[in-house]
Each structure stands twice: as C-alpha cells, then as structure tokens.
C-alpha cells in the first residue's frame, strides 16, 4: 500500500503545478521553478553534508574557522535570498501595484457559503446596486440585486464563470457572509473575498478551456465543495453566451 502510494507520488501526472493558462503565469512559473530548484539544492546539499559529517570518523581537526563554515556560506545564501526577493517583488509589483487597463472586462465575483456567483455588469457596463436584505437564491436573486436600480436591469448573474480568451479581466471580489478564497490554479490566481470589502485583481486568460475554481479559505462545513468552473471561450462564443443570459435575465 505504502509502496504503491509513494511510487505513485513520483510517477504522478500532476505532481507539479497544472499547466498555466494566464498571461502573467509564465513569469510565476519561471520564478517558482528557479526558487524551488535553488532551495531544493540547498536542502540536498545541506543533508548530504549532514550525513557525511555524521558518518565520517573524527579527523584531528580542531574547531574550523568561523569564517569558513559560518560567514562565507551565509553570505552566499544572503545573495541567493536577495536575488529571490528582488525578482519576486518585481513580479508582484507588476501584478498588483497598478490596476487593469481601462478596456478590461469587468466582472464581479460574489462569494457566499458555499457558492460562487459571477456578476456581469451588462451593456451599461455598470453593476446594479445590491443589498443583503434582498438576497434570495430561491427567487433567483442570489446576490441581492436591487430591482429599484436601473443599472441592475441588464446585469447577468451566473454560477459559471465564462470569459473571452485574450482579454484582460478586472475582477471585483465580494463576500456576503464569511471570508472565502478565490483560487484558480491554472490562472495562478488567488485572492480572498472578504465581507465588507471589495477587492480587485486583474489577469488575462490566454488558453481556451475549462478550469476549476476552488475555495482556498476555510469558510465552514461546505468549504471543500465550494467549487465552480471557469470556462474560457472565444470572443464570439462569449458574446453569444452573454446575450443568451441577458435575454433570460430580462424576460
């Protein structure tokens, strides 16, 4: 059993990150590869050294010079750390410091125990106002859109996340009840949805396909099944889908 499991662990198909499907993901993957490689090397080196030192018989060597065993290697690792930090902080800045392009497609993600809802602003490109008192999934208003607000008339609320390929998306995350975590592994994307706050992230899907959306923040008994799908399709298919949903919404 154990053997089977461990063997499988190494012959495993997906024992690394699932294939990337987002524009910024290549940089993330490259960084991940390099840093894990560097640290894995440190790990192996250190442990080989450890075993060797533990097994070899005592040499008549007195205490080694602090410089050789202490500060020199330390300096080397400090350099490694600095390199890791600089490269990673650059990437982080590129992703998070400046906002999306004005042309970006805007979608609101609304989390609640234990569902993801995706709120498209519709043709007027403005989200309808919503109020928690009005939340009622049974009546088809899972995020509490306010019927009094005209901006909401053309809005589309879906439980499946459909996006056009190669178009930047400006995501706006909300949560109705507790903290959830919006996690799309293939998009190298993770951001908590915090009640009482609206948080923005932006990314660009570059490969058509269906990708799982997971909840990465413990949010209650249904945490594990709080999953949805992101479907990245061609521009035209996306427009068709949106139109059909909009018709359903108005009728």
């Amino acid at each position: 059993m154990l053997r089977g499991g461990v063997l499988f662990a190494f012959g495993l198909r997906d024992w690394w990150m699932p294939p990337n499907a987002a524009a910024h993901g290549f940089a993330v993957d490259r960084l991940m590869r390099w840093d894990i490689a560097a640290m894995a090397a440190c790990f192996l080196l250190a442990n080989i050294l450890l075993v060797w030192l533990a097994l070899r018989p005592r040499r008549k060597a007195s205490a080694p010079s602090t410089w050789r065993v202490e500060f020199l290697p330390l300096a080397v690792l400090v350099v490694v750390y600095i390199a890791m930090a600089v490269t990673a902080e650059h990437l982080w800045a590129r992703e998070r410091f400046e906002g999306p392009a004005p042309a970006a497609l805007r979608v609101e993600v609304v989390a609640q125990q234990f569902q993801w809802y995706f709120h498209y602003p519709g043709v007027d490109a403005t989200y309808g106002a919503s109020q928690p008192q009005l939340v009622n999934a049974a009546l088809g208003n899972p995020i509490g859109l306010d019927p009094a607000d005209n901006h909401g008339k053309d809005d589309v609320v879906a439980s499946e996340f459909v996006l056009p390929v190669n178009r930047e998306v400006d995501l706006q995350l909300r949560s109705l009840d507790v903290i959830h975590g919006f996690f799309v592994p293939q998009m190298r994307l993770k951001q908590n949805a915090v009640p009482g706050a609206t948080l923005h992230i932006h990314f660009t899907p570059i490969r058509e396909g269906v990708y799982p959306i997971l909840c990465s923040q413990l949010c209650g008994s249904g945490h594990a099944r709080m999953q949805a799908h992101l479907r990245v399709v061609s521009e035209s298919a996306y427009n068709a889908w949106l139109a059909s949903r909009a018709k359903k919404a108005t009728s």
């Binding site: 960084l31 991940m32 640290m39």
Partner: peptide, 29 residues
C-alpha cells in the same frame, strides 16, 4: 541531527512562501 535535517527541509520552503508573487499560488495549499 534529525531536527537539523527536518528544520532545513521545512526551512527552505520558508523563503519561497515569503515571496508574495509565489505565495499567491501556494497560500493555504
């Protein structure tokens, strides 16, 4: 010695998690 080995094994992933750009994938995994 076991402590040393395990401390290093767990420690080396620290600086990886410490990088926001990577932790945004690894966080809570």
């Amino acid at each position: 010695l076991g402590f040393l080995s395990l401390f290093i094994a767990g420690g080396v992933t620290g600086p990886i998690l410490a990088l926001p750009a990577l932790d945004q994938y690894l966080h809570n995994t």
